[in-house]
Write a protein that binds this DNA or RNA. Structure first.
Lengths: 348, 348
DNA sequence: CAACGGTGCTCAATCGATGAAGCAACAATT
DNA sequence: AATTGTTGCTTCATCGATTGAGCACCGTTG
């Protein structure tokens, strides 16, 4: 079809000429408000048929230029290398489309400069909202958006200049720690203090999780060794290096660990396997995040699953109905049983 | 900054008024060809400064409407739930940006209707190229793009109407099978025929991998049991159901498996752990795809890593320099050693 | 002093879709 | 017969950036 013009795209003017009518009639028919514009159904049908035949596709650039709302929603995300972010992106796309929004996602690889550049590019594309996921400097992005009159939102990591939707890290970490301690007690006879590894000491989530970690120890009156709080960053290698350094320094390693992300867990498990420590007494492990294979690794890996559906529902709730100022919305995480069952409400 | 006008965005006309000059001068300065248009460097500097102060962001819709090239490149991808696709998306974004292209990615959840809809939407946004990754019906998408004069490319799964870049599935599968058989021989004393599980019997990759699987068995003169080729789909549950059915039907299960994706491996490992089969003789496993945790699961999980960098280099090679017709470009996969070392050229 | 080339800008048309305003034709009402 | 209402369209300005054409002014040259 339409062999005569191989490259040039069909416009409403081409269709108008073919239909022997005006471009505005074509426009009205194709964007659905032809009833309102009192176009006869015969003409509407004819135009629709022609559009189909010609393989007409609207030029969004032209349409959006004219319209006041772009219906484009942007998201920046640090990485695609774990299930948590993958699930966030997939859910975001689905929910955006359900609302008639066009999602644009970009991965900024935890690079602050890229984050800013990506935000600016998204503004150029006239996004109506920008969701900053796990951004290193969310407030900078909120400022940039604010100056352009574009709404922004923080996801996963909070900021102070836009509504933030994050997991309830404190409560989640406290419950996760409690569970690891219970497993530790069952396995070793007594609850022994755990190691905390992964994350950045400077980020809110890590701070809150350490706080939950401390609280759970305090709850059962077990003292923490401050040298065993290793907020060494998220990369797998950093966890390995950190553990190796600890093993060099100490006679005895902790018998259990709270691992702050699946990415860190990757390094931890690799080190455990290769280092030769823990050969005849594998540690009791818990991880703040979920991965299907990690779940199958040992018998005793306790995992928290962040409630991605819940978090994104909250995101779109804010987008649809607004939120006051830079509010902080905390979503309780979900505890995953080893046999794939989900148990809600960790504190129940 | 720019407090007076909270919502309305700054345009080149606003900047022109502020600078006491014309919009065309502003445009020339901001898009970099002010030398060609003989604008003085004083004026250029002034305009640049003003643009910065006002937080000006170009309106891409307007710019793209006027220009002939959009510099937008689209990709559709089935899922974000494994490292392979995550890595494809991340690499694609990086390489696109390096070339000054703006990547738009959308996830179609293996839904043929969504694929077509996504392709049409991307055409509306004037993409110059569309990369269909693992599409269920790549030719349909090529047709749609072709009608609009837009280039298309297939990645991961081949089509017949556009250049396709895929892994060398046959060679990869043959070498993977060979390795599993070697491991099987080392462990059990003799090389026993393997089970093939996962993938769709209708897709090219699965067909080729089964062919490689057969070839490797033939190479050492071991006969395959045809009932042990289970192309049950990609979802984890399908692999579980399929294995369960096999276990009900047979007295003895195969001692080794070729698993066709990490997603299928998820189901396989879960079933092995929960079903009670293989309790005192864990099977020798190989997987066509790589996952960091799966790599740590057993001692004997052999994994092939598809060469994402290589595949995307080939994609952009085609985009930059063209390819003849619907050529098929096969990229050799990479074999991963259990200690994280990479060994190239599987056939060496 | 006229002609010429160079510099430094402005003007106005254009990309494709949209929608307010308007117009012609006819029907219904006073 | 004049007014009003309704239907079914068309006309045209507009969104913001881009770019070919053109204009005014300068210094230089013959």
């Amino acid at each position: 079809m339409n062999q005569d013009r191989p490259t040039k795209k069909t416009t409403i003017y081409d269709l108008a000429e073919l239909a022997g009518t005006s471009a505005s009639a074509v426009s009205a028919v194709l964007n659905g408000n032809w009833k309102k514009r009192r176009i006869s159904s015969q003409l509407a049908e004819k135009i629709t048929r022609l559009a189909e035949e010609q393989g007409y596709a609207i030029n969004m650039q032209a349409s959006l230029l004219r319209r006041e709302k772009s219906k484009i929603i942007g998201m920046i995300v640090p990485k695609y290398d774990n299930r948590y972010f993958g699930s966030i992106v997939e859910t975001f796309e689905t929910m955006a489309r359900e609302r008639g929004l066009f999602p644009i996602i970009t991965c900024t690889r935890r690079d602050p400069e890229l984050e800013v550049e990506a935000a600016r590019t998204m503004l150029s594309y006239q996004v109506e909202w920008l969701v900053s996921t796990g951004a290193t400097d969310p407030d900078r992005i909120s400022d940039i958006c604010g100056a352009a009159g574009v709404g922004s939102l923080n996801l996963d990591l909070p900021g102070t200049k836009a509504p933030s939707i994050i997991s309830d890290n404190f409560t989640g970490a406290r419950e996760l720690t409690r569970r690891i301690l219970v497993n530790s007690k069952r396995k070793l006879g007594a609850a022994r203090p755990l190691l905390f590894i992964g994350g950045r000491g400077s980020d809110h989530n890590t701070v809150e999780r350490v706080r939950g970690f401390r609280a759970a120890h305090a709850d059962i009156g077990v003292a923490i060794d401050e040298r065993h709080i290793l907020t060494c960053g998220y990369a797998p290698e950093k966890a390995e290096i950190s553990l190796q350094a600890l093993a060099m320094a100490e006679r005895e390693l902790p018998s259990g660990m709270f691992v702050n992300s699946t990415i860190s867990l990757e390094g931890v498990m690799h080190w455990i396997k290769r280092s030769g420590h823990y050969v005849n007494h594998s540690p009791v492990i818990g991880c703040f995040d979920w991965d299907p294979f990690a779940a199958l690794l040992g018998d005793e890996i306790e995992m928290v699953r962040q409630d991605v559906q819940g978090m994104l529902s909250a995101v779109f709730e804010v987008i649809d109905h607004g939120a006051k100022g830079a509010s902080l919305i905390e979503i309780p995480p979900i505890f995953v049983d080893s046999n794939y069952a989900l148990i809600n409400d960790p504190m129940a």
